Amino acid sequence: MIKLLICDDHAVVRSGLTMLLDGKHGIQVVGEASEGDEAIALTKELSPDVVLMDLSMPHGKDGMTATSELKRLSPDTAVLILTMHDDEEYLFRAIGIGASGYILKNAPHDELVSAIQCVASGDAYLYPTATKKLMNEYMDRIKGGGSGASPYDSLSDREKEILGWLAKGYTNKEIAANLYISVKTVETHKSHLMDKLGLKSRPDLVKFAMKKGLLQFE
């Protein structure tokens, strides 16, 4: 049996998923959590094979932060993101912090079951359009590789460091705390690197970081 922990801030969603999955398809729901800290605590207690993780949980620790901490504490536990966000920024960041899969909440029941079984076996799962997005980014990297000097080379070491943090979705305040610098300094470096790279938005920054191989994929 695949031991599954469900983490979602909506009780109705948790109950519905438990009714759909528990005792079926070789899956046993061993626990439910309403936010990230609770999911981490239950993972330590119950040792699930898979954590089905929502991203947007306003009351408590969000899914991204919880996934990152959970993978450090329990690297053998697979995290399958279940979310409404069909967005490249969320997708790339989730993979970058170690999620084993990413599936949308409007996916058919059979697809969700297949995704759980897939990540439980040690494989990765992405919903079909997400796979296409990653392939497009990979092809862009191949086509753009090795053709002249890159604007990236003009960045200072600190700007490259902050670029990596930004690409992984950290806020200016979080970056400042981690690097022991002021928020204003982070904002200045961010402005400079965005200008040097010709980027206008965070999604553009994430795409650039992918092409440069700055995001590590599990």
Rank of each mutant, 00 (worst) to 15 (best):
H192L: 14
E69F: 01
E174T: 13
L91V: 03
E174V: 12
M19G: 09
A209I: 04
K173W: 11
S68N: 10
A209W: 00
M135H: 11
Y180I: 10
G63L: 06
I116R: 03
S182H: 12
L17D: 01
L4D: 01
V186P: 02
D62F: 08
Y170R: 13
K212R: 14
P48V: 00
A39K: 06
I181F: 13
N136E: 15
L70C: 07
T171P: 09
G23L: 09
G213D: 09
A149C: 08
P151Q: 12
S201F: 11
H59P: 00
K133A: 11
L214H: 05
K196H: 09
S15K: 15
N172A: 15
Q28L: 10
Y125I: 01
T188R: 14
L134N: 01
K105Y: 05
A115M: 05
G198P: 04
T67K: 03
A39W: 03
T77H: 05
S150I: 06
L193E: 01
E137F: 14
T43N: 02
M139G: 09
G60D: 08
P128G: 10
D87I: 00
R93Y: 01
M135Y: 13
M194K: 00
F217H: 08
D62N: 15
K3G: 06
L179N: 09
Q117I: 06
K168W: 06
M139E: 14
S74Y: 04
K24A: 07
M53T: 03
T129A: 12
K173M: 14
T65K: 03
L52T: 04
E35C: 09
K184P: 07
S147R: 13
K61F: 07
K211G: 15
P58N: 10
S68P: 00
L112A: 04
I40A: 01
T185A: 15
I6E: 00
D54M: 07
G169D: 11
S15T: 14
H85T: 02
H25F: 14
L21N: 02
G63K: 03
T188Y: 12
D87L: 02
P108F: 03
S100I: 00
I142A: 12
K173H: 13
C7H: 04
V206K: 02
L193R: 00
L46M: 11
A99K: 00
E187D: 13
V12K: 12
G148C: 11
Q216L: 06
K71Q: 06
E32I: 00
L214D: 04
